[in-house]
């Protein structure tokens, strides 16, 4: 994991996207993975929100880390994260009301996404602002990647469409269960399965 690996730009990238991918290796932030992945558009916007929040909170924590007293470290991190989440919420509500409506309470719930807090605590607390920013972008992108894969299968099966464009023929019978949150468990399980299998092969080969 990133604690022992050298903290290079490339190392952080491959770590966050693959070797310690927040979703399928660390199994973090899956609550939102279940909730928003029935449509690609929602997933995409939600992921952008998470990328923005993780990136900026990492950056901010890293800048002021020297000033934060140890006792209130966590509290300040939560405050910073909440700040950026509310910014996302305000922007969506003002300029993308339809998406805001569709995402409902889940934008506010970005704050409970363990990935963001985890990166602030595990990375930004002990690294410079530049690397922290990069770490935030990449780990949230790792999250986005997995979510988009899940959303791809769910939207195509549940609605026969991708990003809202119908691509399946008319006779296609939608799988209603795929529109419901629990179905994300099936795909999440399969993705973890595939990911672990590939990784085990890599380790065996190394």
């Amino acid at each position: 994991m990133s604690d022992t690996a050298p903290k290079t730009v490339g190392g952080i990238l491959t770590d966050n996207l693959w070797h310690s991918n927040p979703i399928f290796m660390q199994v973090l932030g899956i609550c939102s993975a279940l909730a928003v992945t029935n449509l690609l558009t929602n997933t995409f916007i939600m992921s952008i929100g998470v990328i923005f929040t993780t990136m900026m909170s990492n950056f901010t924590v890293s800048i002021i880390k020297g000033l934060i007293p140890r006792k209130v470290r966590m509290m300040v991190q939560v405050l910073i994260i909440a700040f950026y989440v509310i910014i996302v919420d305000i922007v969506l509500r003002a300029y993308m009301p339809d998406i805001h409506e569709a995402l409902g309470p889940y934008v506010g719930l970005i704050i409970t996404n363990c990935i963001i807090m985890g990166r602030a605590e595990a990375f930004a607390q002990s690294n410079g602002p530049g690397l922290s920013l990069w770490d935030g972008i990449t780990s949230a992108s790792g999250y986005m990647g997995v979510l988009l894969v899940i959303a791809f299968f769910r939207e195509i099966l549940a609605f026969g469409s991708l990003f809202g464009f119908r691509i399946m023929p008319n006779w296609f019978e939608p799988w209603i269960i795929m529109a419901m949150p629990p179905s994300a468990f099936f795909f999440l399980g399969v993705i973890i399965w595939i990911g672990k299998t590939i990784m085990n092969h890599e380790e065996a080969a190394a």
Partner: peptide, 22 residues
């Protein structure tokens, strides 16, 4: 930076700044 006074002042200042921006 670990003193009680600093902690209180810091926490207050941080909250104030962020909430003001919001």
């Amino acid at each position: 930076k670990q003193s009680l006074i600093y902690t209180i002042v810091f926490t207050f200042a941080v909250c104030f700044v962020f909430v003001a921006i919001l």
